[in-house]
Design a protein around this nucleic acid. Structure first.
Length: 566
RNA sequence: GCACUCAUAGCUCAGCUGGAUAGAGCAUCGGUUUGCGGUACCGAAGGUCACAGGUUCGAAUCCUGUUGGGUGUACCA
């Protein structure tokens, strides 16, 4: 239900009929219930241009607003705000029409786009750590969201599988005589440490490691095979995490750094041809206006850097994947890097002018003391460990409820634990750092996944108790039902905005509003109690059902499961 | 040094891109006709939106400066 665009049309028509010229008009949500459902504030700006009293203009405008269908009434308030109330009859009609809709009333985008979402991007030399959490789940949510709205999404997992460290790793792998599935690779962190120790201790080993770097790059079969088995094992670890996290990344989405390897020299050639890069201190550099330091695209020794790979990836995404929009879900600390790379790519014509290049930056996860999240001894926290702990803690918070079998408990604990971690992350505006707190995220209160899941479970409980067909229509009987119904119909507008701004937290904020309204409604308007007439009961059941569907779909986009019982 | 970014209630965070009396949750205090799941709901209290100027009918939001955090800054990714 595209409510805002419908309202915009109505207001535009009214302005036209009133002979007032206006463009880019914006309808916003009312700031308070007393002010109606929506408001149009644009008249004040118009008043200046027209040199007329804003209230006078507003009064003229509202005379031309069509109040026969969607809008119940309009009012001029304050200095010239136009407040808009929607019609209950219209609201219930719209709500009724989406009760059986799988998409709960959400339509598709007007112009479908091809969107590349680059996210997760783990390093194959190491185990995934908490730093990968945000990229993985924000990226995955955006990908799901774009897709749901009807866009074509290409997920790209730009894994780090290339570089000098792999010489050391495969030399060690060979020495350990393992096949990539063995015990040694179970803990990549430890494997890396052991290899490093060996590297530092033995001159012979170190030389071999360096030799192997060159050998992989020149395509030596033996070394490539070792490398491949190492990557496979490492990717297996990542998939385990994706599985736990409910993140939809598969091997098909992997487009590794190594993939661009033989294209890198072309990047340099293009930059040279177009006189964008110059040689400075032996390295190939791009000097951008306003930057003191250059972006190095080729080292003095001929090696390439990550800017080179990113430029190559951009070329590929434009020329081969034909993307309209490319989103990089990467730590905010790399803002400068992406700004530079994007500028160069456009200058060099590696990417068409009209392709939207976006760095979807996010802040750092902090501990209670406001310091970057680490283990007690200062090491990085492994993502698997964090997720396992989440499930264990979730189990503790629900185990005394005593309504589950052991197997059910496991399923529910997973949905709650993983959901809590994801929701806590996604509900914060993504660019700010956030403080990680188990207590807060596993609370039933406030804007948490548990509050949403609990509301969903209560709704399911009502439906189970009713245990019969639900017929009839939603009939809006009071203010709270009006607000709840409208909120449910705002789902599409919310998703659209979240998709344009790439802000998952606007979805969680919306769901929280939905649930809060539902709880109020539920408190005020009993559904199954005795003495309620059939029509009202059915209407309320329908409203509860629809609320449940919206919660479920909303959480689904966030990659969070709901459960029928908690 | 330069650049970017942030500063909102005791704490954790929103604030829809310039609109009406700045909103939630936690914590605190008080309340809820025998309650469809009370891990719920209602209410109170809590603010110089870091500070100082500017722009205008109107600023937490835009501009300038100051202070204080964070981050990035030539061959790692």
């Amino acid at each position: 239900m595209k409510i805002k665009s419908q309202l915009t049309k109505i207001i535009e028509q009214a302005l036209l009929d009133a002979n007032i010229e206006a463009k880019n008009i914006v309808i916003s949500d009312a700031t308070k219930p007393e002010f109606g459902d929506y408001q149009f504030n644009g008249v004040m700006r118009l008043a200046k241009i027209l040199k007329k009293n804003p209230r006078e203009i507003s009064n003229t405008v509202i005379e031309h607003i069509d109040t026969t269908d969607m809008i119940a009434k309009v009012e001029v308030a304050g200095p010239g705000f136009i407040n808009i109330w929607l019609n209950n009859h219209w609201l219930s009609q719209e709500a009724n029409s989406i009760i059986d809709d799988k998409r709960v009333g959400v339509g598709y985008v007007e112009t479908q786009k091809k969107i590349v979402v680059d996210y997760s991007g783990p390093n194959m030399a190491k185990q995934m750590h908490v730093g990968h959490l945000r990229s993985s789940i924000i990226g995955d949510t955006l990908a799901t969201l774009f897709e749901f709205l009807g866009n074509e999404v290409i997920r790209q997992n730009h894994i780090g599988d290339w570089g000098t460290q792999f010489g050391m790793l495969i030399a060690y792998l060979e020495e350990q005589n393992t096949d990539g599935n063995s015990q040694e690779l179970k803990d990549l962190e430890q494997f890396y440490k052991d290899a490093k120790v060996r590297f530092d201790q033995s001159e012979e080993f170190a030389n071999k490691a360096r030799e192997y770097v060159v050998k992989i790059q020149s395509g030596d079969e033996h070394c490539l095979r070792l490398w491949q088995s190492f990557i496979n094992a490492s990717l297996g670890h990542c998939e385990e995490v994706y599985e736990k996290l409910n993140v939809n990344l598969t091997r098909d989405d992997v487009r590794a750094e190594s993939f661009y390897n033989n294209q890198l020299i072309k990047v340099i050639e293009t930059l040279r041809e177009k006189n964008i890069s110059t040689t400075s201190n032996g390295a190939e550099c791009v000097f951008l206006d306003g930057d003191e330091t250059p972006i190095i695209v080729q080292k003095g020794d001929g090696g390439f850097l990550y800017a080179t790979t990113d430029l190559s990836a951009l070329t590929f995404r434009d020329k081969e994947l034909n993307a309209d929009r490319i989103c990089y879900v990467v730590d905010a600390r790399q803002a400068q890097h992406f700004k530079q790379v994007f500028t160069i790519a456009k200058q060099a014509g590696m990417v068409r002018e009209d392709v939207a290049l976006e760095h979807i930056g996010f802040g750092t996860m902090m501990d209670k003391g406001g310091k970057p999240f680490k283990t007690r001894d200062g090491g990085t926290v492994k993502l698997v460990d964090l997720l396992n702990e989440a499930v264990v803690r979730a189990k503790k918070t629900i185990k005394d409820r005593d309504i589950h079998s052991q197997e059910e408990l496991d399923v529910v604990a997973k949905a709650i634990g993983i959901g809590a971690v994801k929701y806590a992350d996604l509900s914060i505006s993504r660019e700010s750092n956030y403080i990680f707190s188990w207590d807060k995220m596993l609370s039933f209160e406030g804007n948490t996944s548990l509050y949403m899941q609990y509301a969903y479970a209560r709704i399911q409980s009502i439906l189970r108790k009713h245990n019969a067909e639900i017929t009839g229509n939603i009939i809006i009987g009071d203010e709270i039902e009006h607000r709840l119904t409208l909120m449910l119909l705002k789902f599409e507008d919310t998703l659209t905005k979240a998709s344009i701004d790439a802000t998952p937290h606007s979805i969680t904020a919306y769901l929280y509003d939905v649930v809060t309204l539902f709880m109020k409604f539920y408190e005020l308007n009993p559904i199954l109690k005795e003495g309620i007439d059939e029509e009202t009961k059915m209407s309320r059941l329908q409203l509860a059902t629809l609320t449940g569907e919206v919660i479920k779909k909303g959480l689904d986009i966030l990659g969070i499961d709901v459960v029928a019982k908690i």
